[in-house]
Design a protein around this nucleic acid. Structure first.
Length: 558
RNA sequence: GCGCCUGUAGCUCAGCUGGAUAGAGCGCCGGGCUUCGAACCCGUAGGCCGCAGGUUCGAAUCCUGCCAGGCGCGCCA
């Protein structure tokens, strides 16, 4: 609808240029927005305000010229007026809104699908937890945000690949092996030394139990046992991670392994290519890459003096490989503690002529845990953390996802454990789900009363004349463009606010019937009843689609 | 010291990318079920949008400088 109105405005301005009513110029940026205050119309535009300077006329005068020359071929506009300093407030004809509701009812869950990303192939890398321990709350936030973003991108026509990058090549896997092995040895020998920086936690003990049943750790050479513990521990951990993610309704298409990059020669090939581009050099016995020329603070080491590759080296290979796989765009969801790596990796991409906007990095600020007024410090090494699994067992998947998804990713998140535990019926997710269940219940009631739904809504919708009804239709109409906005700005959290607001409008509307018989959805006037049933059917469709995109269930009863 | 993020109601957070009277949930106080689901609705109280300048018709939003908090600045992973 906004787009249709924009057509009207540009046609009008064009007309004014031709007639010499306005000086010909390129249009400055203006907005068409939905005003907070319903008195300001369905849409408001600042077009006249932004034109004032270059036209050298007062904004209200320009607004007047525009309104006197409106080219409204599609017959959208019911009325339009000038307000305040020069806003143009526009009311759209009710019939236009009925048409949209009719479309929602016809399209059902297809409504809201858009083609914004048509032809674009993007890879979204998220979670990417080290397989050295179970997923904790921070991973949960990344998982919920990444998964929902992927769902919305797919909905909007993007071809999305969900990817988990496994850091399975470094020192931390070695430490995992040592921790498991030492824990095993300590069962019979409490004095057996434990590695410095080792992981102290219950899950290590469980891994030690499992691995010791798979192999005779006591009679193998220590080194061999440690390798085995590392290998098996990693596999078991990764399995757990996959299981937890699936439980959390998060799926991946590809699991990309850092170790593979080392083993399959990709790293060497990448180095050769960098060499050809004269991007690397040797210094102090180490191998360096010139990132400083492309926006980084300084050059970085690829291979250390001791011959080991840095984490950054495989990261470069990984990202350049992603580019080669033909993606038109890439999105990484990283913990905010990795923000220092953004200019680093961007500079490597820049050195290959890859534009900066090819890779978007969403930095997810840390989740801080509180217990009452005390901060609950999490650490894998100390074994002191709250796992994702514990959270979903405590509050349920729907509630957990909703909490993560109501926060913007770049704002830190304080999570009070005690609050979360009691967030059963006070969690806002139930508010949205309740609206859906309530609508389903009304349809059950209607069926009991023998009301038969008609196929074609168009003969009935004209009965919807209450402000609340028209406001609801307008809110539903904004669903597709909201989803597009979310894709363009990478802001999945906005969907939760939208759904909460639609649910709120519905609950208010429903409650009108408590006081006034005629305002009930099922009432004595069958024509009106059918119209209202069509309306709430449309609401149900949008709520259900929206909840799907959040990975949250839309219950028929609760 | 440098860089990124944050600072909005008692608490947790939104604020549609510069718009008109700044919002929600929770919490507090009060009201509403003999008929469509009270997991709901209605009302009251609660704000120097961290502070100070600047940009303009117009600033929570953009710019500069401070203040406070978080996180990073390795030939660690």
């Amino acid at each position: 609808m906004k787009a249709k109105l924009d057509v009207v405005l540009t046609a009008t301005i064009d007309h004014c240029f031709k007639e010499g009513l306005l000086l010909r110029q390129t249009l400055p940026k203006y907005v068409i927005e939905i005003p907070n205050n319903p008195d300001h119309g369905h849409f408001a535009t600042n077009l006249a305000l932004v034109l004032a300077k270059s036209q050298k006329k007062p904004p209200r005068e320009i607004a007047n010229i525009i309104l006197n020359n409106l080219i409204d071929n599609q017959n959208l506009i019911a009325s339009a007026e000038i307000a305040g300093p020069g806003f143009i407030n526009v009311m759209i004809k009710s019939q236009q809104w009925y048409n949209i509701l009719s479309e929602i009812i016809r399209l059902k869950k297809q409504f809201g699908r858009t083609e914004l990303g048509k032809g674009q192939k993007i890879v979204v890398e998220f979670v990417s937890a080290n397989p050295t321990g179970p997923l904790h709350l921070g991973h949960g936030r990344g998982a919920a945000l990444g998964d929902t973003l992927c769902r919305i991108l797919s909905n909007c026509g993007y071809d999305v690949t969900r990817e988990f990058y496994i850091n399975d090549a470094g020192q931390q896997i070695r430490i995992l092996g040592e921790s498991i092995y030492s824990t095993f040895k300590q069962i019979n020998n409490p004095d057996y030394p434990f590695p410095q920086n080792g992981y102290h936690a219950d899950y290590i003990y469980e891994l030690a139990q499992t691995v010791s049943q798979m192999a005779d750790l006591d009679n193998l050479p220590a080194e061999e046992s440690i390798n085995l513990c590392a290998q098996k521990g990693k596999e078991l951990m990764l399995n757990d991670i996959k299981k937890d993610l699936e439980r959390f309704r998060v799926k991946f298409h590809t699991w990309s392994s850092e170790k593979d990059i080392h083993n399959n020669g990709l790293l060497e090939k990448t180095l050769e290519a960098l060499e050809k581009k004269e991007l690397i050099y040797k210094s102090d016995g180490a191998l360096w890459i010139k990132t400083a020329n492309y926006g980084d603070d300084k050059d970085r080491v690829l291979r250390k003096k001791d011959g080991q590759f840095t984490y950054f080296a495989s990261d470069i290979a990984y990202h350049l490989e992603k580019r080669k796989r033909g993606f038109t765009g890439a999105i990484n969801l990283w913990g905010a503690d990795h923000h220092g790596y953004v200019p680093r990796i961007q500079s490597v991409l820049a050195s290959h002529g890859i534009p900066e906007n090819w890779l978007s990095v969403m930095l997810i600020q840390l989740v801080k845990l509180w217990k009452g007024s005390c901060e609950f410090k999490m650490s894998k090494r100390s074994g002191h953390f709250v796992t994702l699994l514990e959270l979903i067992e405590e509050v349920g998947i729907d509630a957990a996802r909703f909490v993560f998804l109501t926060k913007s990713h770049d704002s830190g998140l304080d999570f009070d454990i005690d609050m979360v535990k009691k967030q059963d019926s006070t969690n806002p997710v139930y508010y949205v789900q309740y609206a859906h269940a309530r609508i389903c219940s009304i349809f059950r009631k209607a069926a009991l009363e023998g009301i038969l739904m008609e196929d074609n809504p168009d003969n009935f919708l004209g009965n919807l004349v209450l402000d609340e009804e028209l406001a609801l239709i307008r809110a539903l109409a904004g669903f597709p463009s909201l989803l597009d906005d979310i894709c363009l700005n990478l802001e999945p959290h906005r969907l939760t606010y939208y759904l909460t607001s639609v649910a709120s409008m519905f609950h208010k509307y429903f409650n009108l019937g408590a006081k006034v018989q005629e305002h009930r959805i099922i009432n004595k006037d069958i024509q009106l009843t059918l119209a209202r049933l069509f309306l709430i059917d449309g609401i149900r469709t949008v709520l259900s689609s929206g909840l799907d995109l959040l990975g949250i269930s839309a219950p028929q009863k609760m």
